[in-house]
Design a protein around this nucleic acid. Structure first.
Lengths: 347, 347
DNA sequence: TTGTACGCGTTATCAT
DNA sequence: ATGATAACGCGTACAA
């Protein structure tokens, strides 16, 4: 090995000072004369010195890394556009400050707990981003007890001392419902995510509220696990109803796209016989026929903000809850007046 | 702070032996009498001792983590089912052995290089998995020069000392072509990935080869960046051709689904007027109408094998190239004899 | 089996 | 106010 990397001792020797002083100079701490500091910095730069992350980790008891544990079936995550964009956002906040993201994907909730314990006991990360909040989410107490700093994505339904970085789904769902009602729909159904997940139950609640606010009967709500398979099943069930809905609000895009397929397969036209709306704005939604009316969220911004908030928490700052721009409706072709002939636009 | 975690010194004192011996006992190394070893292990367990990852990192100069750098537009990754499944596979190999995955997502190739340099200079990971291999991929030399252990996903097109963990796309593409030809198609086009990416150019090559092998004219190949948007554009272009193809083989599912939408929008029926096949087997492909004929790859197994191979490389073992089960065709509804009436199966 | 130096930065304590 | 010294964190490795 040729390139022995220089240590702080090398810098100290070369600059004719002590290790401690070099450390002080490098970390902008008082007690170093301007002149000496300049010299130390010059030598450090000259030698190409960069502190060993490992030594720094050991002595300062920090990992310089954040954790994200995704506890979902990979099959379901695969169809969902949320996490890649979210992670890209996290990355954009971490890269500039030399921090890293440790990602775990686990299938069940038991190994989820284990994973957090491992991250904490190995001190692999300084904090975690809690995504996919659940009802009375046990992770909130868990991370506290493990001494892990954390932020939550969205507001928990239980008291929490953790800063929440939230993006309100409500307005998006409500505009979708309002849009459909405006078009003349009266029997509107919702294919929701799992009710144990807060975004699942909150989107349902927003849906019900929106209908109630417009003095309409609550439409049927079918719960799913967010998978396309479950979205397909829910759609089949809804279309088999005696008073089948004329519109369905889906809790994510993969289910909406699957639902579209099921409806077409069953001989219904979309949006003629059935209007549908998605959630989360996948790219492919723009190109299917009819193009999917959906609700978009800024997942990337969410990731960046969550990571930045967590970094501040780790730095010891007090961080307030953060509210991002709410989800907004994007109207495309899959929603229309009930009974409209199928559109067939030119290419 | 109440729970001061026990150190190896605590265990040593309690067991009445030296630190060194405890280390030996814990790591199953010779030189410890069976009796003493049992006692040491008992004490360690009793005290709830687990070695500090940081101290181990510093003294043994290992990170106990693997890196994966994804250099693609998050928008494109979002639609692609590959990475989530792949990462889940990686995770399944790492979790049992206490290793972690450090994930980076970068937008451009410049920051990609920077990222590898950072990972190496901070010694953040012990090795990296090189995915999305490109023509004359500079990362192969880069990781060598940085002293990073690595495995490649697929065989590079340049000499490489790195073990390759490969899943052959060829048979999948070839069966797709053979399937279409068998159905009677003669003008078959390919919407490919970027030619600078090896899987992009290899799928194209397999496509061309398959046609040649069946004594057919090479069909048009339109190159894309794998995005649904580009898949849509390519489809529009192909359908506008004077001798438009009767079948299109897409290099991934999002493009195939977008292509389906574009074709339908332009008034073509699928598979009546146009047959299409996808690649990578997204879940939603089963539920669209018509259900997507596609080529599936076992991304999760790939992730597990790649991670395991890399761990062995890091452990100093000699690792041979690994070939996984090749991609296979799954025939569904989007492919049929040219000129067939659109299917409309019952629900 | 033991003792101890070592890896490398951080920080508390001292000296000037 | 500047700077030096040394202890510290915690395993690992090697000489004894």
């Amino acid at each position: 090995m040729v390139g022995e990397r220089p240590t702080i001792a090398d810098v100290a020797r070369e600059a004719g000072v002590s290790k401690g002083l070099v450390s002080f100079a490098l970390n902008d701490r008082p007690g170093v004369s301007a002149e000496t500091k300049t010299r130390i910095l010059a030598v450090a730069k000259d030698l190409g010195f960069s502190p060993s992350l490992r030594a720094r980790s050991l002595s300062s008891d920090r990992a310089f890394a954040l954790g994200l544990v995704i506890a979902r079936d990979p099959e379901i995550i695969s169809g969902d556009p949320f996490f890649p964009a979210f992670i890209a956002g996290v990355e954009s906040a971490l890269a500039p400050v030399g921090q890293a993201l440790v990602l775990s994907m686990v299938g069940d909730e038991a190994s989820e707990i284990t994973t957090y314990r491992q991250l904490a006991s190995h001190a692999r990360v300084d904090g975690v981003i809690l995504s996919d909040l659940r009802r009375a989410d046990p992770r909130i107490a868990l991370v506290q007890s493990l001494g892990l700093k954390a932020v939550t994505l969205g507001h928990p339904d239980i008291p929490s001392a953790l800063p929440a970085v939230s993006l309100d789904d409500g307005p998006g769902i409500q505009s979708a419902v309002a849009h459909l009602v405006e078009l003349g729909h009266r029997r509107i159904a919702h294919v929701s995510g799992p009710s144990r997940m807060l975004h699942g139950s909150r989107r349902s609640a927003s849906f019900a509220q929106a209908l109630a606010g417009l003095d309409l009967q609550p439409g049927p709500i079918v719960e799913t696990d967010y998978s396309a398979a479950d979205g397909a099943r829910a759609t089949r069930d809804l279309l088999a109803l005696a008073d089948r809905p004329t519109a369905i609000v889906y809790a994510n895009d993969p289910m909406a796209i699957a639902g579209l397929g099921i409806a077409q397969r069953a001989g219904f036209t979309v949006p003629g016989d059935l209007s549908i709306t998605g959630f989360d704005g996948s790219e492919v939604g723009q190109y299917i026929h009819p193009a999917l009316t959906t609700v978009t969220t800024e997942a990337q911004a969410w990731g960046r903000q969550a990571a930045e908030a967590l970094l501040r928490v780790i730095a010891g700052e007090t961080v307030d809850d953060i509210e991002l721009t709410p989800a907004t409706l994007v109207i495309r072709e899959s929603s229309a007046r009930p009974g409209t002939a199928t559109i067939r636009s030119a290419m």
